[in-house]
Amino acid sequence: MVAVTVNGKIYNTNADPRTPLLWVLRDDLGLTGTKYGCGVAQCGSCTVHIDGVVNRSCRVPLNAVGRRKVTTIEGLAQGGTLTKVQQAWLDNDVPQCGYCQSGMIMAAAALLKTTPKPTDEEIDAAMTNICRCGTYQQIRAAIHDAAKG
């Protein structure tokens, strides 16, 4: 058994320790908000925070997580109250298909933590996730809004 801390809970899982965190989250912990997009850390759909830092969970084996704390999209809103980033996403009506948005929101949340008032260039540098519907323009607006609030 491997113990992993996700969204403030310690889970003990029987998953093979080499399993990517993404699939432990999805298949063992039932946390399907974190998405599979590429499996090679290219698209960012699987973005989570590990000790507050963005990580692409498809390339993080379970046994590399150790005692560090994992936060997924399910761990952001508390008691039904959206975080500032999520609220900005709602206000800007950002998602289209929505599949990449968990990862986008996780990436934006981490950016705003380290850079509370990001410039466009800082947004470009931090937001390297892929969206095929093309919501980039609304994402940029939402990040600026969240930075204001």
Partner: peptide
């Protein structure tokens, strides 16, 4: 159909 897409609740 936006809100659930922001919290991970939307099922695909």
């Amino acid at each position: 159909d936006t809100r659930d897409k922001l919290t991970g609740a939307q099922l695909y």
